[in-house]
Simulated scan of single mutants.
Amino acid sequence: MAINDNIFIKIRDMKENLTPVERMVAETILSNTEEIPHLSIKSLAKLSKTSDASVLRFCKTMGYSGYRNFIVSISAALGSMDDERKDQYTDIQPGDDLSTIIANISRNNCKSIEDTLSVIDPEEVARAVKTLRATDRIIFFGIGASGIVCDDAEQKFSRINKMCHAYTDGHSMLTAATLLSKGNVAIFVSNSGDTLEILEALEIARKNNACTIAITKYNKSELADKADILLGISTPEVTMRSGAMGSRIAMLTVIDILFAGVASAEYQNVKKYLSKTHNILAGKHRR
């Protein structure tokens, strides 16, 4: 269960990966949010032009044991809908004035983090932190905006003396994955979860028995399906570059959570490294 569970966000993010019939149920729910808690399973089946069995199958796909549990989650999510409607994602529009851009980008970034809290699984985070604490080598894989996230991760984990490196181009990723072994951790960062170079490196890492962690959009993808540990993020449905901005902010937040989780659990051991790195950088600033 996510930290700040919101079923509407899950439906939005999963919609394109559902079966055609399940998608009909999803679109009906997203178009009739206020009415759904008052509908029986038969009524929702009729409204969505599907069947009782299809609605129940949809509920199970969303992670619920039955229709009643699903409706309880819908009702809970509706309780916060009024505030969320004021904070919907807004894409960059040609000709926007600077004050509008400042407001919209800030709102989108905040929303990406809030929505990611609705889909990320704390138990998976705990597994990832435990694995990172136990390993002696961490490798980060990502291309483009995801590569920037990997560089940030390398900088953070290096500060607590973890042996780690970020690889951000296809050829170097394949080489790095080939040299992985059992006990190593490979973290793959990809919003889509379908980047070819990432999937090729993932296959090599799995063959070498490295533990694989995916940071990727909360929906069905090859990366999400094949990684040992899945840390899902939620990103906006926008058309311009603000979409990549939102996913990057969400991914950076997940990296911060992992770093803080490891550093906090091992604080007595890593505080000397944090202090040393802080002091050397502070000395540079005084020059």
Rank of each mutant, 00 (worst) to 15 (best):
I187Q: 06
S221D: 00
P94L: 13
L98G: 11
S192C: 03
S43L: 13
T28D: 03
E124Q: 15
A76L: 08
T135R: 06
A26R: 00
A210N: 01
A26K: 00
A76V: 04
L78P: 02
L252I: 12
G246M: 04
Y267C: 04
F8S: 02
A76R: 10
T90M: 15
T253V: 06
T216A: 14
H171Y: 15
L179Q: 05
F58N: 01
L281N: 09
L18P: 01
R137Q: 10
V149E: 02
V254S: 07
T135H: 08
V238F: 04
H285A: 11
A176Q: 00
D87Q: 11
S73I: 01
L281V: 15
E203N: 11
Y64A: 06
T168D: 05
G95I: 07
D136G: 15
L44M: 03
K276Q: 13
A265K: 10
N279W: 01
L179R: 05
N161T: 04
I11H: 01
A176P: 00
N4R: 15
I138T: 03
N4K: 15
E266S: 11
E124W: 12
V72F: 14
M173F: 04
K111M: 08
Y273K: 00
T90D: 14
R68Q: 12
Q155N: 15
G246H: 08
R286G: 02
K220I: 04
N6H: 09
K130D: 03
D82W: 05
A153W: 07
I213N: 00
M1Q: 10
F8P: 00
A177M: 05
S275G: 02
I255R: 00
D194C: 14
C110H: 11
D87C: 12
L281C: 10
K162S: 06
S48H: 02
K10W: 05
P236Y: 07
D5C: 08
V119C: 09
P94S: 14
N109E: 14
R85L: 14
L199I: 07
S181A: 13
A145F: 09
Y167H: 10
M163D: 13
I249A: 10
S146P: 05
K86V: 09
K220T: 04
K272I: 11
R241A: 13
D13I: 06
P94K: 14
S158H: 09
K49F: 11
T28K: 04
S158C: 04
I92Y: 09
L231R: 09
G232Y: 12
I187L: 15
